[in-house]
């Protein structure tokens, strides 16, 4: 077990190294250097040269790479020139927090809906409940989150003006407003995620329900209800942990568009703003942090999984 944890940790570190190298490559080796991108086309040659020197772009590429990796290793994300030399971490991490809030609540809601729905759909396979659940999951699968988000926005903010059309107020400032601003983005992401999880839960349940040991349990005289709800649920729920984790990781990055629609200043929103204002020193860290979140979440999921089902670690 300890060895498994150690191996997964090592793999996580390796992936993070590749990720940071990829970010470095993307932002250094492409046409137009960071200095030109930051300043735009109409900068004077003097300003350009000064900025190149300041960013260390005149150093050989391997020196730049080592400096980049060294800074990251020390947790130094640098200062943003375009944001008045603010610490990049002071921009990125609060934004990440706001994104995590959205993602966590959405996943929670999705699980609350998907687990019972998937179970009922599997237990009552072929009935109208099942059919409705399957239509819901199929539509949810192909429904782009942003189309869904705009649909909700039209419905709940324009046609029936029940909710604010977006924006962000910190919870400490105005809890009620904060929560009302959360509802639409959370509903949007949760419904699309719930569709995936329901499908997963249903498939898992169906598989387990037909498995031998459930039949054995039935033969042992347990009531139908206990067979379904206990054995099948436990065995279908464990793989669901992985699925939830993967979705959570993807959400952290994939919510860019939702944050844009509902003007929620999370990581994705920060990225877009930074791209539009050419704050590439912020963009690269935002990209890195979103990938890191994905890696860390996956690592936690794998460890949870191996804790729930020790066979994984042994194999």
């Amino acid at each position: 077990m300890t060895r498994y944890v150690a191996r997964r940790l090592l793999h996580g570190i390796l992936v993070m190294w590749i990720v940071s190298t990829a970010v470095f490559v993307i932002f250094r080796l492409v046409p137009g250097d960071p200095a030109a991108m930051t300043l735009g086309f109409d900068a004077s040659p003097e300003d350009y040269e000064a900025l190149r020197e300041e960013l260390g772009l005149n150093d050989p590429i391997h020196v730049q790479y080592l400096r980049w990796m060294g800074n990251l290793a020390r947790g130094d994300f640098g200062k943003s020139i375009t944001h008045g030399y603010a610490e990049v971490s002071s921009l990125v991490f609060p934004a990440l927090g706001r994104t995590l809030e959205l993602a966590a609540l959405s996943i929670l809601l999705a699980v609350i809906v998907a687990v019972p729905l998937g179970m009922i759909s599997a237990i009552r396979e072929g009935t109208w409940v099942d059919h409705i659940a399957r239509v819901f999951t199929t539509l949810g699968f192909s429904m782009p989150t942003y189309v869904m988000g705009i649909g909700l926005l039209i419905l709940l903010a324009e046609v029936f003006p029940l909710l604010p059309p977006g924006g962000y107020v910190p919870f400490g400032e105005d809890p009620v407003k904060h929560l009302s601003q959360l509802i639409m983005p959370v509903l949007t992401i949760a419904s699309v995620t719930a569709a995936r999880l329901t499908r997963f839960m249903r498939a898992g349940m169906l598989e387990v329900l037909s498995a031998d040991y459930v039949r054995t349990a039935r033969a042992k005289g347990l009531t139908e209800r206990r067979v379904n709800y206990w054995h099948a649920f436990r065995n279908a729920a464990i793989p669901l942990v992985t699925e939830v984790g993967v979705n959570f990781g993807l959400l952290v990055g994939g919510m860019v568009v939702i944050e844009q629609i509902f003007i929620w200043p999370g990581l994705g929103w920060l990225m877009i703003q930074s791209i539009l204002t050419r704050a590439f020193d912020v963009v690269q860290i935002a990209v890195l942090v979103s990938a890191a979140t994905f890696v860390i979440v996956n690592l936690l999921v794998d460890l949870t999984y191996s804790w729930l089902d020790p066979r994984i670690a042994r194999s």
């Binding site: 992936v15 590749i18 990720v19 993307i26 137009g32 990055g253 994939g254 979103s290």
Partner: peptide
């Protein structure tokens, strides 16, 4: 496979955004 591990760690749209931002 290790390289793809690294690339798959990026949420797809984020990686695409970063590339478009840099390329134009």
């Amino acid at each position: 496979m290790r390289t793809t591990d690294g690339l798959l760690a990026f949420p797809p749209i984020i990686l695409a955004m970063a590339m478009v931002a840099v390329l134009g």
